[in-house]
């Protein structure tokens, strides 16, 4: 069976297999374990995430992709009974160091959640919230610019530019998802974690978000969780395959999709189990 990699974007060459950059990885995770109460959700995962790359997390439902993503900006702190061990550094700073400020960490590591969760405020206030609490702007004009730019990049501007003061919760599911993307990039984080950002989007909006990822990749570190092999192949440079809490395999996207080392990876990407 054909791998999605070769079937992606017929007629265009697949993205060049980016050699590992020489610079050190942005995020380094070593022997990370996560428990929800007694449930061992992430088992001894070690991975390097590089700057100016899109890293895709793939794997069957319930394998721990979201969990691992949330570990990276300590969103698991607010889940009761969740325990994390191991060492994770972001640009050399240990993010589980008790002295580290989580507020600052989450400003550096932004997140788009699996389920769209706009605030029950206006569209404008949704996007402006992050810049406001972090004091990123000095004038209303500057804030207006950030809001417009973020909405444009999230491919939502044209649809909402005339009703910025309407509630964000009144948008459609896919629009809400793009609003959440706009809200996350308005803070200009260093790392953006996206948990299935296109799961509710039509092909056109999906293409726009993928374009956005490609553009953001120039400056930021991006991690995306996706169930679409095609999408992983299209947008990512590196891919990590999770299975039942284990990190089975990580490597350049081309290698994972064309020469998987592990039998489980091979079965998954060819659709033999899910």
């Amino acid at each position: 069976m054909e791998t999605p990699f070769s079937s992606a974007q017929p007629g265009t060459a697949p993205p060049p297999a980016v050699p590992l950059p020489n610079e050190p990885p942005s995020i380094v995770a070593r022997n990370v374990n996560v428990w929800y109460g007694d449930k061992h959700a992430i088992k001894n995962v070690s991975i390097d995430i590089y700057r100016r790359q899109v890293t895709a997390f793939i794997g069957p439902s319930g394998c721990g992709k979201s969990t691992f993503l949330r570990v990276l900006n300590r969103m698991n702190d607010i889940i009761e009974g969740c325990r994390v061990t191991g060492k994770i550094t972001l640009d050399g700073d240990d993010i589980y160091d008790p002295r580290l400020d989580v507020v600052q960490l989450r400003a550096r590591v932004g997140m788009v959640f699996q389920k769209p969760n706009p605030f029950p405020k206006s569209i404008y206030d949704n996007v402006a919230y992050g810049p406001r609490i972090h004091g990123l702007t000095r004038s209303k004009k500057e804030l207006d610019e950030i809001v417009e730019k973020s909405l444009r990049r999230a491919a939502l501007w044209d649809e909402v530019k005339d009703r910025l003061d309407e509630p964000g919760t009144a948008l459609s599911g896919g629009q809400q998802q793009r609003l959440c993307i706009a809200r996350a990039i308005a803070v200009s984080p260093d790392v953006i974690l996206m948990d299935e950002p296109c799961s509710a989007l039509d092909p056109i909006a999906t293409a726009k978000i993928e374009e956005l990822m490609d553009e953001l990749r120039q400056d930021y570190t991006i991690i995306i969780v996706t169930h679409s092999m095609q999408q992983a192949a299209r947008v990512s440079q590196r891919t990590a395959f999770f299975h039942l809490g284990d990190l089975v395999e990580v490597g350049s996207t081309e290698q994972i999709f064309t020469r998987p080392q592990d039998r489980r990876t091979q079965d998954y990407i060819t659709g033999r189990f899910g």
């Binding site: 900006n73 969103m75 607010i78 507020v103 600052q104 960490l105 989450r106 400003a107 932004g110 997140m111 959640f113 389920k115 969760n117 706009p118 605030f119 029950p120 919230y129 992050g130 609490i133 972090h134 959440c180 809200r183 996350a184 803070v187």
Partner: peptide, 11 residues
Amino acid sequence: SIREAAYGLGA
């Protein structure tokens, strides 16, 4: 989810 969204933005 509202709390998560706010925490996720660094509130």
